[in-house]
Design a protein around this nucleic acid. Structure first.
Length: 852
RNA sequence: GCGGGUGUGGCGGAAUUGGCAGACGCACCGGAUUUAGGUUCCGGCGCCGCAAGGCGUGGGGGUUCAAGUCCCUCCACCCGCACCA
């Protein structure tokens, strides 16, 4: 043992961990359990630094909990369905499955050298038939429980790729891959009834105390609960069947401010009028066209068309309001119809101004007089205002109270009722893609839509497919669609839609508790391991993945696949920052950027140049991306410095929730430090037994202090502070003048405290210093409380709040004694210069402040 | 526009939540060791100042014996949502 050689020790310890099975999760009722989960990766083909950071964070938690006596579950799998595999098949030929499993093999091979404490025996990919077959079983249960249904929905249709696109796959109105103009099509689609749980998913957010406030807020906004009044306008001259128009408003207190009614272009009434009136038809066609590109939406002018119809004001039937079709009314929000109150709504104001509609005010600021409005007056609902055209109740009150009064009046008079609406819509899960979980239903001419029999699951994807033409290969497969109706046995056809990949990731955390079960879950296992105690992942999943998972856990409970305690599957959530890196660029003759790889750059204090000396522009702290060439490959780092250096560095520099900047200097410094620790260990191992132990007590105190600090830092997800404490401890040990046994004990403690971050190096030190067994499973050190307190404390002495001196006194010295010593201090005497002391503050153990 | 967040040395960041601002690391400067070093070790390092001392946590104001931390106000940047009735 002389030189620190990660390439030797890292594989060696990994082999020993595997042989001892130290990371195999075992149900042990005698121990508390701890389930650590990082969001599983998409098998893109290579791991990146973001993975290293994400999985190291989880590993630090998992290893610490293991050492603290928990039975730990720390699994890994692959979010393996999805479009990139199909795109690869289209571009390079081959089968998406081959591409995916190859990538998984490569990435697993890249992850294992990181030395993560993962129970690899539980690994699965969502594209394994064993996994998606169980997903199909649950789908059938959920269908029978009324949690899944079919309906017509407007979707983004890519006419070239012949598939539905998610909203985020539409860029400037064009398909992100094909570049074709996306059409709005109405298709029959499968939906999860997540809206049944809108209220529940919202109110349960309050219980997620260990989730970031930001994520809870984003989810709350996404669910978008609003309280309002639904009522109907009586129409005056509308076509038959449209005697009433249902309207929803969150501001019924402004009913007297109504100057028009407006309906969406897709509203049934608009469709009815379209048939009779070519001008209306033209206007509606115009509405449908517009509004797909970002610019158009930004600059879209509010346009409308007066239908000539009239409705009666519910509070005074003698007042008639015009009905407009307007492009800013959304059919799928509320009822697709509104009343316009231009005085107190920005949009309505713009609209009314443009078309010369009246703008009657309803309220004014408390204490103000009624005045002509040159702009809409839109105070917060919580603000008190004076109603000049009051619906009901007191004249001066908050908007909130006004709304309640208005709803009460409407209900009393019987023209409307208070309702709660949600922005959250049902989750459309149909995808016209091949590489996804087939929806296990059958279309039968006689029986209609019938769920497949469970004994026929999994409904596997056919292997003999080609991607040489657009569209869904399942649709054009010669035989795959043909099947017998599970109900009547007659020839029938399979559903060819597959499931959104968000379904796959909505329950994998539950599957990890019993990954080989022949049912979706094993309730006994789920009961022991659920919930996930610490979930770690990117903020980009704040809404969809996490909300879908919360819904799915509830749906799984309802269908008997999860215990009640697991309906909120993630007890604590942590969202980590990215790993960033500088971008280096030069410009071509046209000023266009040319990016350069980090290894082609020579850095100096003043800036950076290429190897030929030409200057390079620096863009600091940018997200790593291949196109910008600012990517650092973890495998290169592991090859030159070892996994422990990569792990330590990504945890050391920044708080984990923030982005961390990868720098070559930082990685170098980490490697040097780990070498220092190694060399220190070598030195201590060779120490003479007879070394005097004058510094034993001080060393023990330093170890106790670090134990406390590191433990608290890890528990508080402040890994950077934990690492700072470990630097401190290393320095303290290096300087200590302690006996050999004390030094060895200190190094074993250091190794243990470092082990969540640098598990391989720690094992080597542990072994060199006579530690028993594997460091990975040795107990976490506990700080002796007696060593955490000093007998003496140094108190700064301030005069008028400025530090002028300090005294060292026994810890428990009474304040009166401290006062005397402080006033006798020579610095204090000098600064006081005989002036009388007005006030003397002694904060025990902290500070003394003399006021003159 | 609405909502949320951040702002501390040359840089990444600490500060037990009102009690010595700048822990720890990087960079930089000095010294020693080494055949050499982009090695290792020792020391220095907020700014101004020879010093005494003064100033200093985005700007301004306030509360307090004491403010990075609490209150008011302004500014800058970042993120999320956005015609949501």
């Amino acid at each position: 043992m002389s030189r620190y050689t990660p390439s030797e020790i890292e594989p060696k310890w990994q082999t020993e961990w595997d042989a001892a099975g130290v990371f195999t999760a075992k149900v042990d009722p005698s121990k508390p359990k701890f389930y650590v989960l990082e969001m599983f990766p998409y098998p893109s083909g290579r791991i990146h630094m973001g993975h290293v950071r994400n999985y190291t964070m989880g590993d630090v938690v998992a290893r610490t909990k293991l050492a603290q006596g928990f039975s730990v579950l720390h699994p890994m799998g692959w979010d393996a369905f999805g479009m990139p595999a199909e795109n690869a098949a289209m571009e390079q030929g081959g089968h998406p499955g081959t591409w995916t499993y190859n990538n998984i093999d490569v990435m697993r091979g890249q992850m294992k050298p990181l030395g993560l404490s993962i129970d690899w025996s539980r690994e699965f990919a969502t594209c394994d038939p064993e996994y998606y077959g169980q997903q199909q079983a649950m789908f059938i249960d959920m269908l029978e429980a009324g949690l899944v249904y079919r309906k017509n929905a407007v979707v983004n249709w890519d006419p070239v790729d012949m598939t539905v696109l998610a909203n985020e796959q539409v860029e400037n109105g064009r398909g992100w891959r094909s570049g074709a103009l996306v059409e709005r099509r109405e298709l029959t689609q499968w939906f999860f009834k997540i809206s049944d749980y809108s209220d529940e998913l919202l109110s349960a957010l309050d219980g997620l105390k260990d989730w970031p406030e930001k994520v809870r807020l984003m989810q709350a906004n996404w669910i978008g609960k609003s309280q309002g009044l639904q009522f109907s306008f009586e129409t005056v001259n509308a076509p038959a069947g449209f005697e009433q128009i249902e309207v929803y408003t969150t501001r019924p207190d402004t009913l007297w401010g109504a100057s028009f009614a407006a309906i969406a272009a897709e509203h049934p009434l608009a469709k009815a009028l379209e048939a009779q009136n070519p001008e209306i038809a033209a206007f509606i066609a115009e509405c449908r066209k517009g509004g797909t590109t970002a610019e158009e939406i930004e600059t879209a002018e509010k346009v409308g068309f007066d239908t000539g119809l009239r409705v009666r004001h519910p509070l005074d039937p003698s007042i008639e309001l015009p009905v407009w079709i307007a492009n800013f009314i959304l059919m799928d929000y509320g009822t697709g119809a509104i009343f316009g109150c231009p005085a107190h709504d920005q949009r309505d104001f713009e609209f009314a101004t443009k078309y010369g509609l009246s703008i009657p005010p309803v309220f004014v600021a408390e204490g103000a007089e009624e005045a002509l409005l040159s702009e809409p007056f839109v105070p917060a609902k919580s603000e008190r205002v004076r109603y000049v055209r009051n619906v009901a109740g007191a004249e001066v009150k908050t908007g909130e109270q006004g709304i309640l009064d208005a709803i009460a009046l409407a209900e009393e008079k019987g023209f409307g009722k208070g309702v709660t609406k949600f922005r959250l819509r049902d989750w459309g899960l149909s995808r016209q893609r091949y590489w996804g979980c087939p929806i296990p239903v059958v279309h039968c001419a006689a029986c209609g839509v019938v769920p497949e029999k469970k004994e026929n699951l999994p409904i596997e994807l056919p292997k003999d497919v080609s991607f040489d033409q657009p569209g869904n290969p399942l649709d054009r497969h010669p035989t795959w669609r043909d099947c017998a109706c599970p109900s009547c046995g007659a020839p029938a056809r399979r559903e060819t839609d597959t499931m959104d990949t968000f379904v796959d990731s909505s329950w994998y955390y539950a599957r990890f508790t019993a990954p080989r079960a022949t049912t979706p879950t094993d309730l006994a296992e789920a009961d022991y391991w659920m919930n996930v105690d610490q979930y770690i992942g990117g903020i980009e999943h704040a809404i969809l993945h996490l909300l879908y998972s919360r819904f799915f856990a509830r749906a799984m409970h309802k269908t008997g696949h999860l215990p009640a305690k697991a309906i909120e599957p993630f007890n604590a959530l942590f969202t980590q920052g990215m790993v960033t890196h500088e971008i280096y660029l030069t410009r071509d003759a046209n000023g266009r950027p040319i990016y350069h790889l980090p290894e082609d750059i020579i850095r100096s204090e003043t800036g950076a140049t290429l190897k030929d000396g030409s200057p390079v522009e620096l863009i600091p702290s940018a997200k790593m991306s291949k196109s910008k060439k600012n990517v650092v490959d973890p495998m290169n780092i592991i090859a030159s410095y070892g996994a422990d250096t990569a792990r330590w560095f990504v945890m050391s520099d920044s708080p984990p929730e923030r982005d961390v900047e990868w720098t070559a200097a930082g990685a170098d410094a980490t490697f040097k430090h780990l070498n220092r620790v190694w060399n220190l260990s070598v030195k201590v191992a060779e120490m003479d037994e007879g070394t005097a132990g004058a510094g034993d007590k001080d060393l023990a105190k330093a170890v106790a202090r670090a134990t406390e600090d590191v433990t608290r830092a890890i528990e508080g997800f402040a890994f950077n502070k934990g690492i700072a404490a470990l630097y401190g401890l290393t320095n303290a040990i290096a300087k200590a003048e302690a006996s050999a046994p004390a030094m060895r004990q200190a190094l074993r403690d250091l190794a243990k405290l470092m082990s969540p971050f640098t598990p391989h190096l720690s094992e080597s030190i542990w072994a060199a210093q006579g530690g028993e067994g594997l460091c990975a499973i040795a107990a976490w050190p506990k700080a002796d409380p007696a060593l955490l307190v000093d007998d003496e404390v140094t108190l700064p002495i301030q005069i008028n709040g400025k530090r002028r001196g300090e005294i060292t006194v026994p810890k428990d010295m009474p304040a009166s004694e401290v006062e005397k010593i402080a006033l006798a201090n020579e610095d204090v005497v000098r600064f006081l210069n005989g002036q009388p002391v007005k006030k003397l503050i002694v904060v025990p153990g902290r500070i003394v402040n003399v006021v003159i």
